[in-house]
Amino acid sequence: MINIRRRKILKGTLAAGAVSLAASAGILTPQTVLAAWPKSAFSAKSVNDAVNSLLGSSSLTGSSDINIKTPAIAENGAVVNVSVDTNLKNVSSISILVEKNDSPLAANFNLAPGTIPFIKTRVKVRKTSSIIAVVKSGGTLYSAGKEVKVTIGGCGG
């Protein structure tokens, strides 16, 4: 009984220690960047964390109304064309994530009303991965993904 409690207490202190370490690391990094730039979303290590940090929720609804165009095989992962368009209405943002990159979030585009929900850009893809587009439409997050096979890595490989 005593032993179990001891384990729990130890676990608790370790976890708290890790959190405070992370926090102090965050504080220590120079804040030269714009306040608006979502730093934590770009440094998040998983798709869920990145989307949650960027858009405030990680519940994604799969949608067939999102159309992602990427090459099926990318010879050079440093330059992968991605285009996203959608029939969804009231789109306020489109985010592009590369699932297997160290930090999945590649880019986020906030669209003003009157801007057509269409984005085309180029991203780096470290290794074969699915590319995920998250579209925010009327407060709901919709997503769609497509896999890209990479033969040469894109992140300094």
């Binding site: 770009f42 330059v79 906030n110």
Partner: peptide
């Protein structure tokens, strides 16, 4: 303003 983008280092050179 019509569009603003937040980019990470994963956008190509």
């Amino acid at each position: 303003k019509i569009l603003n983008a937040d980019w990470g280092p994963a956008v190509s050179a």
